[in-house]
Design a protein around this nucleic acid. Structure first.
Lengths: 341, 341
DNA sequence: CTGAAAGCGCTTACAG
DNA sequence: CTGAAAGCGCTTACAG
């Protein structure tokens, strides 16, 4: 294995100069730099990350912490962030914390994360799991994605979940619906989200503003998965007179709802309209009307904010208010006016 | 930051002994070990990974290389592997190579992967990208997942894609179908798969055995995505008399096909049956009949084989034939007998 | 702009 | 079973 002193000898300079030249530090003459680069290429030299880390204190690595990787939102965020980070020369250490019951043990493993990475991206971790951050935050830059994930001193990227929910409900109201059900996650969800709280809030506010009293019969707790959507919808149908529309807190739930309705012999949207939030990859395929959120954009942006912090080019404190990205209604075939009664 | 010599001093032993005790090496007396562990706990000491890597040569990290993370198969494999690897104390470095056009540049970044990780898991990389492996394989243990990804000296885990395809087609034949279309990926797919070649082979063989001549009109190249499925199906419908059944090379394509059929006013399965391969999370939700493959199992198994190699407990060479996991037909609502003509 | 030298914090023969 | 000492391969003040 070629080492830095092989290159130094070959180029006729010191190892210090090789180190500087290869990292592009400005304090190297053009001629020397060229000679060093040529030598490195000639000898097929690449720096030893282990040695570089120990001596330099930088790991060139970033931790991305998500509840799961198989959920559309998380996978998309990670994929987007990964592209930006790799582009900038950083490696990505992936931690999927899993369900609520696994978090504690995983936290243990990440207790010394500050020794493994230069910064971390925390996706959709609830406030409660902030203990986790407390344990690692010590001198570690970071960024959060998703509402409910707020770490003092870290910038964040998210959408306005309340507003997104209101947009969804407003669409249904505009179509003439009055009996609008909501299926969402709950505090006991396997996954540590909190976005569902804001979305439920938006649902209630929008109905309230329309003068429609809240009906607990139409508001069901479940979880943010396809299965959660089918379960919630089955429950809804069991409760008697069905609503004319269902607002699902995410597209995966909405797709579950559509399936259940279909199996129950109800047509979407003729009998019941369905709307979600996300604009999941499959939303177009199943004709789901939804409130789209820019997920790739959130991943890219958050990664960029991380890089800015690492370069020291991060803007001043005023910028620490979370960046809120816009959402927009995408009307497809799953929503329509209620049946004339 | 507490260092190893702080612990050594506190426990009244040498740093060498602390190092051995903390790693559980057998050459430490029980009493000494207890004293060292107590000291480490007391001082809140955790080893510096950078220093440990440089001195010990082990990184405690494994690279997982996938084309994308947002596709169901890849996400599921990664999630399963991650659980096993973290459980064993390894960190996971994620590399999503992206489409074909990005691979080359990414290869550059991974050229010195053997300096960053102890082993790697290569998922669904085509033979062509084996240059990639050549560059990094040097003294690096590894494992492959998915057919078409074969690296000499590395064990592999996969399903029998030919057999899976035959199972799917046999199901359709048993229902009475004779005009069976196939929609699949192609060599120019954005993603570097090869599984589609085997699946197409199985399709043709099964038809051949049933005495049904191949009909190029019914065999369409596209790619392994929902959008690929819709595109292929639209093309199929344009070509004139539709088949009575469609065998999609993966569930995502099958779901795209179902959507297109629905929008075209064709009922599934009354007018056309659809079957896929995978048993995607959403397959149940949309009632898709499919040939299920154990994806989580493949990820877990592959991770285990990697750990075995790293522990030196990997079985002898005979075991290097790829492990083939079983697939099984899951009949749902998307397949039925062809309409009586 | 460049170099000599210390130091990053561990692990590992080697010796006992 | 334990320790003294070398060494892993870089980066970084410091000095010039």
């Amino acid at each position: 294995m070629t080492r830095i002193d092989d290159v130094a000898r070959y180029a006729g300079v010191s190892t210090a100069t090789v180190s500087r030249a290869l990292r592009g530090l400005p304090t190297v003459s053009a001629a020397t730099r060229a000679r060093v680069l040529a030598a490195a290429t000639e000898l097929g030299y690449t720096v030893s990350p282990s040695a570089s880390r120990l001596a330099g204190g930088r790991t060139g690595t970033i931790a991305v912490v998500v509840p799961l990787i198989t959920r559309w939102f998380f996978g998309t965020v990670v994929e987007a962030a990964e592209a930006v980070l790799h582009e900038a020369g950083y490696d990505l250490l992936l931690y999927t914390l899993g369900g609520r019951e696994h978090i504690r043990q995983r936290l243990f493993r990440t207790a010394d994360l500050h020794k493994r990475v230069d910064a971390m991206m925390l996706v959709a971790m609830p406030l409660k799991a902030a203990d986790f951050v407390t344990a690692t935050r010590r001198m570690l830059p970071g960024v959060t994605i998703s509402s409910g994930t707020v770490v003092p001193g870290w910038p964040g990227v998210r959408i306005n979940d309340v507003a997104a929910a209101r947009t969804a409900v407003a669409h249904l109201l505009a179509l003439g619906h009055r009996r609008i059900a909501h299926i969402s996650g709950e505090p006991n969800d396997e996954l540590p989200h909190t976005a569902h709280l804001d979305r439920r809030l938006g649902y209630r506010q929008e109905l309230l503003d329309a003068g429609i009293p809240a009906d607990p019969q139409l508001d069901i707790d479940s979880d943010f998965t396809v299965a959660g959507g089918t379960r919630a919808t089955e429950e809804l149908l069991r409760r008697g007179e069905p609503p004319t529309a269902i607002f699902a807190a995410c597209d995966e739930m909405a797709m579950g709802a559509m399936t259940t309705l279909r199996l129950a012999g109800l047509r979407v949207p003729e009998d019941i309209s369905v709307i979600g939030i996300d604009d999941h990859d499959l939303a177009g395929a199943v004709g789901l009307t939804t409130v789209a959120q820019p997920v790739t954009e959130q991943g890219r942006l958050a990664a960029g904010m991380l890089l800015d912090q690492l370069c020291g080019t991060f803007p001043d404190d005023r910028e620490l208010a979370p960046v809120i990205l816009p959402t927009r209604l995408v009307v497809r075939e799953s929503t329509g006016p209620p049946r004339a009664t």
